[in-house]
Amino acid sequence: MALEAKNVSFRYGSNKTWVLENKSLSLERGECLVILAPSGYGKTTLAMLLAGYLKPERGEILLDGRPLPMSGVCPVQLIFQHPEKALNPRWRMRRVLEESGAIQEDMMDEFGIERAWLDRFPRELSGGEMQRFCIARALMSGAEFIICDEISTMLDTISQAQIWELVLREAAKRDIGILAITHNRFLAGRIADRIIDLSADRG
């Protein structure tokens, strides 16, 4: 067992309807699990729960049988859908990468991050370029699992392909577990080892 959600239930506020009810899933290192569902089925909520951004109301999230660490660098890193929101607009990109530790040159080459970009602000980069930084930031922190919450939805198909190529290659190299969330069945078919459809088991 690696990263595991055990009978997790969550709702936003104690008198609201359940967003997720009694969900369980597990993800091994080196595996790519895709979660597929239409809007409003709690995909992002599940991602936030698994990365420790939210606490489940019932059930628990376990990493190798233990709860996620609450302080220090989290071994489960979440990559958000909108890179422009995930970057401090007043920071140059060099600082963004340094936030997760020392800059690793080889990973920058791997991700096709040009040295000149490091001295730019987020608004001076395109969406795909920003997303590369977000992924690189998550991976440079030494993450063992990454959760990709529709990380390529706002990109054109070529950039999507490029980004996923990079993520999958890096994950295979470091034996990282990937949980990818998407609407796109074709993308899911290309990258997944296993697919879970959240809409299938809702009563």
């Binding site: 990365a51 420790g52 951004y53 302080s71 220090g72 660098v73 989290c74 890193q77 979440l78 958000f80 909108h82 929101k85 995930a86 970057l87 401090n88 936030e99 997760s100 930031r137 922190s141």
Partner: peptide
């Protein structure tokens, strides 16, 4: 409530 602040916390800050 910004995402980059939440991310920063998860990066151990």
């Amino acid at each position: 409530s910004q995402q980059y602040v939440a991310i920063s916390r998860k990066l151990g800050k």
